[in-house]
Write a protein that binds this DNA or RNA. Structure first.
Length: 197
DNA sequence: GTCTCCCAATTCAA
DNA sequence: CTTGAATTGGGAGA
């Protein structure tokens, strides 16, 4: 007999641990936000954030940074669109005192972010980073910086949270590789506890 | 001001 | 075919 389709956690898997460390490692939490709400948030954030297109020199040419970005301190009284509401949800979901958010808009499969770890000045020891995904699913790759450089891929569904420990930012890199073929638009919101300036 | 680190796209090798 | 290394240069942070 095949497993019954309604068995909880069989098809729609629950929280997933990509790897473990002393601070909780990297965890994927699907369906933290209901699908319909995530869809509304996607449109509102897309339409109201003040997106910036960056350019960067590369050899003898200047190239576009392959995504649009925006960033806010959560104490900003003029947070655009639903950002304050979203921040409240994420804070409540994890019980972390997030005070900053960085947004990335991946417009199609050519948009990406190179593997990287968050810089020490962006985060606070003991506090994780939480990446909320909205819009289309995109694959993230998390890779250890030290040999054997194990890498894990995770498809980030809308409404999910990827929670990465502070320690993991020193030991691992994460990135969104380019993909060929049609891909929908995705917006990520990376919540952090940043040190005061 | 000075130093260090990072990240873009393309090319090339395995 | 796929994956990874190497490459240059400007900007951000310490």
């Amino acid at each position: 007999m095949p497993a019954p389709a309604f068995q909880p956690g069989f098809f729609a898997s629950g929280p997933q641990v990509l790897f473990e460390d002393a601070e909780g490692g990297v965890r994927y939490l699907p369906e933290v936000v209901p699908f319909a709400l995530a869809a509304r948030w996607f449109e509102a954030v897309r339409d109201h954030a003040d997106w910036k297109a960056m350019r960067r020199p590369m050899y003898d040419r200047v190239v576009d940074v392959p995504r649009l970005v925006a960033a806010y301190r959560l104490e900003d009284p003029a947070l655009p669109g639903p950002l304050a509401d979203i921040a409240g949800h994420v804070r409540d979901a994890l019980g972390e005192p997030f005070n900053a958010v960085g947004l990335n808009w991946y417009r199609d499969g050519r948009d990406s972010v190179a593997p990287h770890g968050d810089k020490p000045h962006m985060i606070t020891p003991g506090h994780p980073i939480a990446v909320l995904s909205l819009g289309a699913e995109r694959r993230m790759v998390v890779r250890a910086k030290q040999p054997p450089r194990r890498s894990v891929a995770i498809d980030l569904a809308p409404g999910s949270l990827l929670v990465m420990s502070h320690a993991s930012q020193a030991t691992h890199e994460h990135g969104i590789p380019k993909v060929r073929g049609p891909v929908g638009q995705r917006i990520s919101l990376a919540f952090r506890v940043r040190p005061p300036r």
